[in-house]
Simulated assay, not measured.
Amino acid sequence: MSEPSTEEEFTARLRALSSRYWDSHPFHLRLHAGELSKDELRLWAANRWYYQRCIPRKDAAILANCPDQDVRRQWRERIVWHDGERAGEGGAENWLRMAEALGLTREEVLDERHVLPGTRFAVDAYVTFARTRPWVEAVASGLTEMFSRGLMTRRLADMRERYPWIAEEGFTYFTTRLKVIEGEGKSTLDLVVRNCRTREHQDAAVAALAFKCDVLRAILDAVDYYAVGGADRTTGRS
């Protein structure tokens, strides 16, 4: 069996997967260039909602599989961030406000009428991965946090400039998420490095992160394919 990588080498292997992140996906490039129609933005928001609503389920699966009390105490805060302490709060609620700012009704987002099969398949596979794989691998899959702050910062600036018709309250998800994402990414990386001490475990962590990158790109593949094929079919609005 191969010797484990050093912490520096292991970290470098994880960071090298940034090229597989979804920031360079054609749909994201069009979004940032201001080239999306209102219907395409609505389609994106409705499909991204399905991913947002499943994140707490993914995190709950990690908690269920993790025997370490300290890790569970740390990780449960993520569920609270997304679900909120009470109704009307949290990251999921803020994403619904984004969808409403784009012109979707809360009802049509919540009933998932616009969620595409490819999106549902990819996100469900991610939840299943977290439920069935060792907890450290599921945590490692979330290391896309290492890559997301730059994309989110750019998205907030570009959407404000390119889509000035979006009300400012629609950006609350991004403004609040930016306050925590960097710290979460650092703590998640430390957790993975600390708990992956064999080459086998390190390889599994790298594979888990690659899988998550594929999940994210698969979501945009579905949205992009449908949008290019006829965005007007999304909501029937201009």
Rank of each mutant, 00 (worst) to 15 (best):
V180Q: 13
I219T: 02
T6F: 11
V193G: 11
M146C: 01
V206F: 05
E7Y: 06
A222E: 03
L43G: 11
V193L: 12
Y21W: 09
V193C: 09
L189Q: 00
R177M: 01
V228W: 09
E3W: 13
V193H: 06
A222Y: 00
A140E: 03
A60C: 10
G150Q: 02
W165Q: 14
G88C: 11
P56R: 11
R15Y: 13
A218Y: 02
L102E: 13
L29R: 15
A207N: 07
L29F: 02
W49Y: 15
A122K: 08
R53K: 14
G236W: 10
S2C: 09
K38T: 05
D83G: 00
E89P: 02
L63S: 11
A207T: 04
S148M: 01
E9R: 12
R42L: 14
Y173T: 01
S37H: 08
T235L: 06
T176K: 12
F211R: 01
S2V: 10
W165D: 05
S19L: 11
E112G: 01
H201G: 04
L17Y: 07
L116R: 10
R113Y: 06
R97F: 10
A45F: 05
R15H: 08
V127E: 05
L209D: 03
Y51P: 07
P134Y: 11
R20V: 01
T198Y: 13
A157C: 05
E85Q: 13
K38S: 14
P26G: 02
Q69I: 12
L31K: 15
R177C: 05
D70Y: 10
Y163E: 01
L216V: 00
A45C: 11
D39R: 13
A167V: 13
V223R: 00
E40N: 09
P164M: 02
R57N: 14
T132Q: 15
D158R: 08
E168W: 05
R194F: 11
R15E: 11
A60M: 15
R76D: 02
R131D: 09
S141C: 04
L216T: 00
T119D: 01
L43D: 10
A210V: 03
G170R: 15
T119V: 15
Y225P: 03
R15Q: 08
L36W: 12
